[in-house]
Simulated scan of single mutants.
Amino acid sequence: MGSRTFEWILSNSPDDWPYRDVPAFVVTKRHLTLPADLDITLVSGDASAIAAKARNAAKGKSVWLVGGGQTAAGFAEAGELQQLFITTIPVFLGSGVPVLPVDRALDVVLRKQRTLQSGAMECILDLQTS
């Protein structure tokens, strides 16, 4: 996950880390203070190398990338994303935020769309490799 997502989760849910049972990697160039009781590793650099570390830690299970468009874009550009789960929380911000700010066009196919109990809207999209 990106560092801003990591910090948001810790600020808004400090006693309820949602990834307690899985290793987590935080993509950042900054030094962040990590809770001692959680399996969190700070990483930076090449998205393909980070993805390889995450796949190794996942031991054959799926790897989930959590965060904003900027974090996801680096992995998309490296060809490391196969599917997007985009959750839109209906709050009026005044201006938009790019969902996936990549430098090349990506082909996506909508697989599922639903409204969550919280009122957030989720779209699941498959990324087509070219």
Rank of each mutant, 00 (worst) to 15 (best):
M1K: 05
A78S: 04
D103F: 05
K53P: 04
G60A: 06
S13Y: 14
A51P: 02
P23N: 10
F92R: 08
F75D: 00
K112M: 06
P18Q: 11
Q113A: 15
S44P: 05
L42Q: 14
K53F: 04
L100R: 01
A36Q: 15
A76Y: 01
A105K: 12
D37G: 14
F75K: 00
I50G: 00
G79Q: 01
P35E: 15
A49K: 06
E7Y: 09
L32D: 12
D15S: 15
D103L: 06
G79L: 01
Y19K: 08
G94R: 09
G45S: 13
I9S: 05
K53L: 11
C123V: 04
I124A: 06
L93M: 15
G45I: 10
G2F: 02
Y19E: 07
A58W: 04
S13G: 10
D107A: 11
I9G: 04
I124W: 04
D37L: 14
L125Y: 15
A73Q: 02
K112C: 06
T41N: 14
A52G: 02
D21H: 14
V108P: 04
S130Q: 02
T87W: 09
D46T: 03
V102S: 07
A49N: 06
S62G: 03
S11A: 15
K29P: 03
S130K: 06
P23V: 10
R20V: 11
F6C: 09
L32Y: 13
C123P: 00
A36F: 15
E77W: 02
F85W: 10
A120W: 12
I89F: 14
D107H: 10
L10E: 13
A52V: 03
F85Y: 07
R104G: 09
G68C: 05
F92L: 14
Y19C: 07
T88D: 08
M1G: 05
I9T: 09
F6H: 09
R114G: 05
P90W: 08
F92N: 08
D16G: 08
G68V: 03
K53Y: 05
G74V: 00
G2N: 13
G74W: 00
R55Y: 02
A58L: 02
F25P: 00
E80H: 00
L34W: 15
R104F: 12
V27W: 00
I89A: 15
V26K: 00
W17I: 12
A36M: 14
V91R: 14
L38V: 10
T88C: 07
V91A: 13
L10G: 06
W64P: 00
A54N: 03
A73S: 10
V22D: 06
P23F: 09
A120H: 13
T129N: 04
L106G: 03
V108D: 05
T115D: 05
I86A: 06
P90M: 09
A47V: 01
V43R: 04
G74A: 02
P18Y: 12
A76G: 02
P101N: 10
R104V: 08
V97D: 07
W8T: 14
T41I: 13
V26S: 01
Q113I: 09
I50W: 01
L127H: 01
G60C: 07
E7A: 14
Q117K: 11
I50F: 03
L93R: 12
L127E: 01
Y19M: 06
V99H: 05
T28C: 11
A105F: 08
V27Y: 00
Q128C: 06
